[in-house]
């Protein structure tokens, strides 16, 4: 397998789902979408609409029943998760509770934790970039919720994969902290140019970063376009119902 290496190897990759079919219980899902390299995509939609399933398909935790999934032009439809050029951050349980911050990040470099000097340098560099310098030897229990997600992002940085998936990664954080994390992700994205796909149930997250919005309902993408347009006053009536009372929040 061709592991990306070097500082610029992680320039974003494009993502394409080509008539991907997937049965989720009784719901037949069907995805067709294209995400440009080095862009930010925000997936929104009611709960149960298939947002997380979409990410799981891209990451390889679910296998498509039909259709093709291409990342950076490569067909990864049947590739196991480790062979996909993808890192993912979950809402929780991103960190192994018995390992300290440095080890948790180090896993992104070597899954058996046999780190050499270059690995160690990369790890401390990533920890510094997410603003956790000095907390290398802390266990996850001694970190706040936001700090834990920062560790997970640092691990994604040392993995150096061209795609980063955020599965409601900041949903359990308060508004201020969530914005802070989004800004961090935005800055890192400018740096690394990785493609970001984030699932969120806060539409305003999509506005905070220059993102393309994909709106899901019943396992299908029913609207997509620049977030600024879709969430503006001229938004399609389709979204109006989902956004509902949140109009005033925007």
């Amino acid at each position: 397998m061709a592991k990306p290496s070097g500082p610029h190897a992680s320039d974003g990759a494009s993502i394409r789902l080509d008539a991907v079919g997937f049965d989720f219980g009784d719901m037949a899902m069907h995805f067709d979408l294209a995400i440009a390299p080095s862009s930010i995509a925000a997936i929104i939609g009611p709960s149960g609409s298939g947002k997380s399933t979409l990410l799981n398909l891209i990451a390889g935790f679910e296998t498509a029943k039909s259709g093709r999934i291409l990342i950076g032009g490569q067909d990864v439809t049947h590739a196991p998760p480790a062979r996909r050029p993808v890192s993912m951050v979950f809402q929780d349980n991103n960190l192994f509770a018995h390992l300290d911050v440095a080890a948790n990040v180090g896993l992104g470099r070597k899954p058996d934790l046999k780190l050499n000097n270059a690995d160690r340098t990369a790890v401390s560099e990533a920890i510094r970039k997410v603003g956790l310098a000095g907390k290398e030897v802390r266990k996850p229990e001694a970190l706040s919720g936001g700090e834990r997600q920062r560790v997970a992002i640092a691990r994604a940085l040392v993995r150096n994969r061209p795609v980063l998936l955020l599965d409601e990664a900041f949903a359990s954080l308060g508004p201020a902290l969530r914005h802070e994390m989004l800004d961090l992700v935005g800055n890192l994205q400018e740096d690394t140019r990785m493609t970001i796909v984030m699932v969120t149930h806060h539409p305003e997250d999509a506005l905070r970063l220059p993102s393309t919005l994909f709106y899901l309902e019943h396992g299908k993408i029913v609207a997509s376009g620049p977030a600024k347009e879709l969430l503006s006053d001229k938004r399609p009536s389709l979204l109006r119902k989902y956004l509902g009372v949140k109009d005033s929040d925007l």
Partner: peptide, 21 residues
């Protein structure tokens, strides 16, 4: 947690690393 197994497979841990870690 199931997330650990997701992570393990994404990070490409082999059987021994899974057992140990």
């Amino acid at each position: 947690p199931e997330d650990y197994w997701k992570l393990a497979s994404q990070l490409g841990m082999n059987g021994w690393a899974r057992f140990r870690l």
